[in-house]
């Protein structure tokens, strides 16, 4: 019990724990759509893109969340648009737009050498530096995204499963895709302080891929992915405290360990199911041998 309670005496840990819980759940929720849309690396790409936006917003004196969020939103929209062009796949669109944005951030940093702000936290995360104000922003983003996902659940499901057909049945795909890009950008910006740009893809992809091994239902995948993301965030924070390692890395490593355990369980379960299905009852074997022998008896006559 002491393992659980001792770290809670520190305010920085309590803040970090709440942030990891919120962001883990949020990334888990959004991750289901991202993985099923086969855009797993958009999280990785957008976090780099947002880094460029963070530098620009700093130079222009704009609030980080607004500047970086807007930048991420525009990048997500551009990726969506470019990915639909013939000859440009989603992977290439992510690669071009996000690395160009990241390069812009790096170029501006190298050009303006009077930086007082440390951008390392945006790259690798600084969960222990999370303030109550940051938590408020994260909670607000998570709540808005959750409400949007619930309200547009059916539209998002249809446009993720069958993007070309959904508009035929009345899904306004332009609005759905724009809203999704906005939610994704908000998730990335809110998550930057927790896991950092370099590890955000894992926080998005691992919980949903893990949940996918446990169920074939879309709704249950979403619930499980959200819970797995939240639990991995909390467990990773404790791991970070007790093993004295970076919190973002601890969260991702714990998520990866859970994925391996679940994958092993799912593979064993599927193998057993197949073996049971393939098992031929002894009575069936007798019937088969009779059928095979029947023509031979006929030819003997």
């Amino acid at each position: 019990m002491q393992y659980l309670t001792e770290p809670l005496q520190y305010e920085f840990f309590r803040n970090g724990l709440i942030a990891a819980l919120i962001i883990g759940a949020l990334c888990g929720l959004m991750g289901v759509y991202i993985v099923l849309r086969k855009m797993s690396y958009i999280g990785h790409g957008l976090s780099h893109s947002v880094f460029g936006g963070a530098v620009v917003s700093y130079l222009m004196g704009i609030n980080f969340f607004i500047g970086a969020g807007l930048w991420g939103f525009l990048s997500a929209l551009l990726i969506n648009r470019a990915a639909r062009k013939r000859g440009i796949g989603a992977d290439a669109a992510i690669g071009i737009i996000t690395t160009a944005s990241f390069a812009l951030g790096v170029a501006l940093i190298s050009k303006t050498r009077s930086f007082s702000r440390d951008f390392e936290s945006a790259l690798f995360g600084n969960i222990l530096g999370v303030t109550p104000q940051d938590i408020m922003v994260m909670a607000a983003v998570a709540l808005v995204v959750l409400i949007a996902v619930l309200v547009f659940y059916k539209q998002l499901l249809f446009s993720t499963f069958d993007p070309e057909i959904a508009p035929i049945y009345g899904v306004h795909s332009t609005w759905v895709e724009t809203g999704f890009a906005l939610a994704l950008a908000a998730t990335i910006v809110a998550s930057l302080n927790v896991v950092g740009a370099t590890l955000i893809a894992a926080a998005i992809v691992i919980p949903s891929t893990t949940a996918r091994q446990l169920t074939d239902s879309f709704g249950r995948t979403m619930v499980l992915s959200t819970i797995i993301g939240a639990l991995c965030g909390v467990a990773g924070m404790y791991g970070s405290y007790w093993f004295d390692i970076a919190s973002g890395a601890a969260i991702v490593l714990f998520s990866a360990a859970v994925f391996v355990v679940v994958l092993t369980y799912a593979s064993t379960r599927d193998r057993l199911k197949r073996r049971r299905a393939m098992a031929v009852p002894s009575s069936a074997a007798v019937v088969t041998s009779e059928i095979i022998e029947a023509p031979a008896a006929g030819t003997a006559d």
Partner: peptide
Amino acid sequence: VDWTFPVTVEQVVLMGRIR
């Protein structure tokens, strides 16, 4: 169709009733 997508028959058929 992505046959590995986690949807049941009911969920697919309901898509046609979204309006």
